[in-house]
Amino acid sequence: MSKRKGIFVSCNEAALCCDKSQYKEASLAEKIRLNIHLIFCKACRLYSSRNSRLTWLLKHIETEELSEDDKRIMKQNLEKQMSD
């Protein structure tokens, strides 16, 4: 990625920055560009607010995933059964 980018970016790039910032992986420059873009772009403002809402929702579900430990135990049990 070239370092020399203006402060005005396309919607595609703004969306990329927006996605990255949802995972706290956007650099400061990217955040600034995103916010400048949001000032004049209504569509991206909408996307950005939906994106934050999605992140918020995802944070609020109970993580109903099996832990790696649980999976390992299940695997061991299954392997035991297989060898029998």
Partner: peptide, 24 residues
């Protein structure tokens, strides 16, 4: 199986029995 489907099946079950241990 475990890598591919355990989470999917677990979620399927937990929606129906509402208990982690039983689901597992």
């Amino acid at each position: 199986w475990i890598d591919k489907y355990s989470n999917y099946l677990f979620n399927y079950t937990i929606g129906r029995v509402n208990n982690r241990e039983i689901a597992q």
